[in-house]
Amino acid sequence: MRATARIKRLGIALGVLALLVWCAWDIDWSSFRYFSWGSFRGTVMSLLRPDWSAFYTGSTEDIFSLMVMTIAIGFFGTSIGTILAIPFTILSARNLWKNPVVPRIGKFVLDVLRAFPELVYAIIFIKVVGPGPFAGVLAIGIHQVGMLGKLFTEEMERMDETAVEACQAVGANGVQTMFFARIPQLMPIYASLALNHFEIAVRSASTLGLVGAGGIGATLIFAIQAARWPRVSIILLTVIVTVFLLDLLTGWIRKRLR
């Protein structure tokens, strides 16, 4: 019995290993050919010397202003996402509808919204409103509708229905039940999810600049292409520290939302 189990385990391990070798086989490793430790070390060394002077110059194009812009894109995008997610949640929560078709349609729409990466939304919205931060806001907003709508719906379906029953039992109407039983229960959870997605949004907003949708991303890419490593370094440092601080801040608020 133990012997067969051991053989089975060995077989699985060998199978996985074979699969990995097959995966590694025809991947083009040639980019390593031009790799030299000398230039790598040089890059790393200059990355360790961030160009502090670029952080704040007083212009609207310095790293500080761009980071604030990135946060603003994230905040506005998450606001749009949160507000628009609520009607979708009401549409797609199974426990709010007697008819099973409506929630299925709602969930399908949310799935479709989520299927497109933010980058694709950004490219589409740049066509609509022109390059700039607003395109990033819309891209993040629409993507977040899909994400938050799904999470909100799950929470709505998972919620404790006993308080809902209590409201119905005293003759409350649907809207009153919503405001007295559902919202007080769900509000802290929804706020917590929205805050968490604000942090995620800031992270995506810092990449959307790559396609011209505003924020700090474009500057970073230009700096990388020009191999201006001290500048790359200060930008990355700013993004990391900002997201880290936001993580701490939203985590602190979320803990108090219990």
């Binding site: 083009d28 040639s30 980019s31 031009y34 790799f35 790598f40 990449t207 970073l220 993004v239």
Partner: peptide, 23 residues
């Protein structure tokens, strides 16, 4: 900190440092 870096930025940085390609 590793978790904080958006993956697109990570990719861009690695492309710059290592070079473009599947690896």
């Amino acid at each position: 900190i590793i978790r904080t870096i958006p993956n697109l930025l990570l990719a861009a940085l690695l492309v710059a440092v290592i070079g473009i390609g599947e690896a």
